[in-house]
């Protein structure tokens, strides 16, 4: 703990969640379960992985596309997940090291004149990921570890926003999502709306706007935590990510 922080003796606590860790499920013997888990991991990691390969390995977009396809479609086997030890570090770091190994192996094989064994093609929007590279800042190119982490956070939040949009649509709460979008997601940078302005625009009482926003934020928070639960391999890692992403701490003084 930094010298400037207030200390209060604390004990560990747990976050309730119904989600399973996709990291652990990906190592399971149940193939359907494993494929589902890998799909979850791919959704969260393919964009950070693509950008990382472009920057770290200076691969052009076609090479990066092939390397990432190969990594997620083939190299990321059950044995890989079985090797992961949650006590030794975060899954994100582990996966990045696996990606580095994969790229290194592929480059070695290429130099030796061997051709890769045609990996299954995943339906991923590489053109979109390529366009996003333009948003990267100079700091991203200087510290690739931090860049990988930031891009992962970006993807986790983006997936949670998508999930919230889907949830609102499924429950007929598109108005809730619209309020969330206008107030929290994409407010007018010149004049962020007040609750009163949103209420006037939507023809709702202000109390309803605050209730709708509170619901959307609560669901968004739950969806982010669900994603984190899936993408982490241990309770400790989950707590650490929840603290880093949402500032959630569940510390209590010792009894």
């Amino acid at each position: 703990m930094a010298g400037g922080d207030t200390e209060i003796g604390g004990r560990d606590d747990r976050f309730p969640s119904t989600r399973m860790s996709a990291v652990r499920e990906a190592a399971s013997g149940d193939e359907a379960c494993r494929q589902r888990a890998i799909g979850t991991l791919i959704a969260a990691y393919w964009k950070p992985a693509y950008k990382y390969v472009r920057l770290r390995w200076k691969a052009d977009n076609e090479q990066a596309k092939d390397l990432v396809q190969g990594f997620f479609a083939g190299a990321l086997g059950r044995a890989t997940f079985a090797r992961y030890d949650a006590g030794k570090g975060s899954f994100r770091t582990f996966l990045r090291h696996c990606l580095d190994d994969h790229v290194r192996d592929q480059r070695d094989a290429q130099r030796a004149g061997k051709r890769g064994g045609g990996a299954a093609v995943l339906s991923l929007d590489f053109a979109g990921a390529e366009a996003e590279l333009a948003h990267l800042e100079p700091r991203d190119r200087e510290d690739l570890d931090a860049c990988f982490q930031r891009e992962w956070v970006r993807q986790v939040f983006a997936l949670a926003v998508d999930a919230l949009r889907d949830l609102c649509a499924a429950q007929g709460k598109q108005g809730h999502f619209e309020l969330f979008r206008r107030y929290d997601l994409e407010p007018d940078p010149g004049a962020p709306p007040s609750y009163a302005a949103l209420a006037a625009a939507a023809g709702l009482p202000v109390t309803q706007v605050t209730n709708h926003l509170a619901w959307a934020r609560r669901e968004f928070r739950r969806l982010v935590l669900d994603r984190l639960r899936e993408l982490t391999g241990s309770e400790a890692e989950f707590r650490e990510e929840a603290r880093a992403l949402l500032g959630i701490t569940f510390e209590e003084p010792r009894p």
Binding site: I42, A43, W46, K47, S123, L124, D125, G128, E132, H135, V153, R154, Q155, F157, A158, L159, V161, D162, F180, Y183, D184, L185, E186, P187, P189, A214, R217, R218, F220, R221, V224, L245, L246, G247, I248
Partner: peptide, 22 residues
């Protein structure tokens, strides 16, 4: 597998929104 790109500013706002007390 979508997940539209979110700016750093949007991430900061979403973080705050998820943390905001009701």
């Amino acid at each position: 597998m979508s997940g539209a790109w979110l700016s750093d500013a949007a991430i900061a706002r979403l973080r705050l929104a998820a943390e905001l007390p009701e």
